[in-house]
Every structure is written in C-alpha cells, then in structure tokens.
Design a protein around this nucleic acid. Sequence first.
RNA 1: GGUGGAGUCGCGUAGUGGCCGAGCGCGCACGCCUCGAAAGCGUGUGACGGUGCAAGCCGUCCGUGGGUUCAAAUCCCACCUCCACCGCCA
Length: 417
Amino acid sequence: MIDLRLVRDQPDLVRASQAARGESADPVDALLAADRGRRAAVSRADDLRGELKSASGAVRTASPQERPAILERAKELSAAVKAAEADQTAADAALRAAHLAVPNVIEDGAPPGGEADFVTIREVGTIPTIEAPLDHLEIGERLHAIDTERGVKVSGARFYFLTGVGALLELGLLQLAMSQAVAAGFTAMITPSLVGPHIMEGTGFLGSHAPEVYRLEADDLYLTGTSEVALAGYHAGEVLDLSAGPKRYAGWSSCYRREAGSYGKDTRGIIRVHQFNKVEMFVYADPADACEEHLRLLAWEEEMLAKVEVPYRVIDVAAGDLGSSAARKYDCEAWVPSQQTYREVTSTSNCTTYQARRLDVRHRVDGRPQTCATLNGTLATTRWLVAILENHQLPDGSVRVPAALRPYVGGVEVLSP
RNA sequence: GGUGGAGUCGCGUAGUGGCCGAGCGCGCACGCCUCGAAAGCGUGUGACGGUGCAAGCCGUCCGUGGGUUCAAAUCCCACCUCCACCGCCA
C-alpha cells in the first residue's frame, strides 16, 4: 500500500508513476474518492457515538418520570450508531480495496515502459567462446549431477534430483552465499516454507501472483516461492529499532512455484522448476536509506557472481515490469552459452514502504513510529548451477570448478564424467 | 487429538454491566531536592484514525471476530494464542 498522504498531497506524482508503468490513472482517482468517503463516514459515526454516550449517561441519572423518554431517545441513537458504524466498516473496506489496487510509486529514474524497455547498466566478464556448447542438462547428466527423468517419475514435470556432485555443488553455492552474507553483517536465517494466509496476503503474493502459489487446502497454509515472504512477515506488526542501521537477514529456504501459465517455456533442465533452493537477502531500513541500501544489495549480488566467475549483465528493470511492490528493481542476468543469451539469476527490489505498510512494520523517528522500508535481493539459487555448468564447461564435457566452490566438492578443480 | 486454565496501557497485576472515559506497582522521561548522585517528592507515560499552522481537541483500541444491552474489560457464541496434564508420533 502506498502512503495515503502522498496521494492526497501529490496525486499527479502517483498518476505519473502509473503512466510510466503503462497503467491507467483510474485506480488513483478511485483511491482519492474512497479516502474522502471513508473520512466522511468516520466523522458521521464519531458524532453519533458522542451523542449516544451522553444520552446513555443520562439514563442512569434520570428521574423516574424522565426515564422512558430518555431511554427511547437512547434506543434511537443506538440504532443510528449501529447503522453509521456499518457504513464506516463498508467505507473502510472500500478504502482498503482501492488502496491495494494502486501499485507502488516508482523510484525517480526507473525506466518507463514494459518488459522490453529495460536499461542495461553494465556488462561484466568475458563471454566464453565455446564450440558447440552443451546445455546444462546434458552436462549435468554426463556428470551424474542432475537427474530430471527420475524427478519426473517421482513428482512430475519440472521436478529433478540433484545427485552426487550436483547436490554438493548446490549446497556449496548456498553455503558460499550464506558465508558472504554473514561476513557482511547479515543474520543467517532458516525460514518456514509454509506460511499462513495473513502473511501471504500481507506480502502481496496473493494478488497477481496468486496462481503461482501452492496452497495446502487442508491446513490453510501456503508454500512460499521465496523466503522473502517469511522474512517480511518476521517483523510484521512490530516497531523496530533501526537507530543502529538497517536490519539485514539472509534467509535460506526451499522455494515452491506452480509456474502456472508457463507451459512450454524452459521445459528442459532446471531453469524453471517447481522447487528450488535460495539464499535471499532481506532488509528493513529507514526509508531515507533505502536507495543506498538497494545499491549495496546489488553490489553483494555482484560479489557472489564474481565468486562463481560467470559473465553477466545488470539491468534496470522497466517500470511496467516491476510488480506491484517494487519502486525499482535491478536484475543480474548470467550468460547462458547454450542459449546465447542472458538469463535472470538475481533480482533486487526496493519496496520502499509499500510492503511494510501492509505488514505494519515500523521504526521510531524522533520517538514516533513511522513505516519503514523493505528491500530484498537474491544471493544464490539453484538456477545458478545452469550458468556455472555451462560457462565453465570444457570441450570434453568436463567442468572447471570456480575456485570459491572447490572446497565444497572435495577440492577438485575439474568435474569429469 | 482430549481435558483443564489463562490472555487487561513496555513489564507485573486490580477489575463479574453504568463511579473503568481502565486503578495500583515496576520501568522509563522530565522537574524539585543535592556539590554530584541515590533515596524521597511531584508531573508525565502507548497505538491508530479524524480535525487543526500549532498547543490541543474528538473518537477507537482490555487476544480476534460476532452477539445481547440505552450502556460491555465485565454477559453470550465462535475462533486464535499460550500454559499444564493425558494420548499419539518423526
């Protein structure tokens, strides 16, 4: 949810943000109308309640003769209050619905336009020249590192087993990410993958992402697609002390995604799967520090990418592709030789106060509680194995292991079939 | 899964229909006292919404949501959470 004061005071700023996203300004005007409607309903109910209170007080001090008339008056007021409160409840609900319908106001500088209108900030590393590159599944199968056939047998399409060095490589990658995060001052977290509806709603994943989310009907729980959900919920409803700087968490979790509507896309290998593992950075910060923190998150992602020695580019995601919560988003895309293109391996979002307002996470400024900002960013995921295996493949089908990962695969420099 | 108990203003508690528009203690803040401090004394003490330039004023909040009543922390119903014991179990 965006800051209501911002819409009231600078509606054109919000309308401009909608335009940059390629969306209509109608929800903004609907929000303004709902806000006015609610305030009117609140003051009406307040006034009636005040009258009822004094009438009610008069009931017990009234003389026996006056009593019936006063009681009658109080009953009428009671009914009026009940009606006014119902109106207020309806107005509250209408405001909330209108409020939720407006996505975050984009950060100044975010490129306008749709998915294709991203701006490339930089390209890092050298694209390897590989004669007839094998794709990661081919490599993984030769190394007995990835088994999608049995994944399908056991769980269906888009499931896989990581076996032997494949499993070790993933554990190593995640461990490397966690170690880096902890060294940078993050608190290591292993988070629940199942969360209740209030948290899932609060983080906004039941909006446009709803079809992507697994739901456990019998228990009314949701499987999370990222530890961001649990980490955002971690401090829900709390007032934090951020006087010593941002609260930084690094969450390790398995992530579950239904991948509804992606039939036929990336069906081969482990690029797009229903279950994977991820180390995610999540930060609660003073909104005044959010921009700087966002760039720090990007820098930590790039530090990890440097450790696994794959070429990548950094893109500034266009406004229309930000999702409802993010004000700005930077993706790192690693080079995938078999596809001769870049594929997303990290994504870092500055959600400003949008997510925190929903979850009611605040911090104190001059003793007063204020909504804080939240940010998130990827430090490593199973998908990274695609880039690692493909970029480091050697002509004979073996794979050079980046130095940083060698300790996790028994110290070997090259994985051979 | 079963049975019993409990959820009150940061913490601990009082409170069984109107005097609770929530008391007391602790903690905290400020002031007095003091060379300084402790003790003592006094004052204050949260959140949300509305309104106002502001000081302030008004309203809401006693786990959550309903209900009864002119009036609910208090009575009724449902749910949630915690504690204890029993059963089952990786």
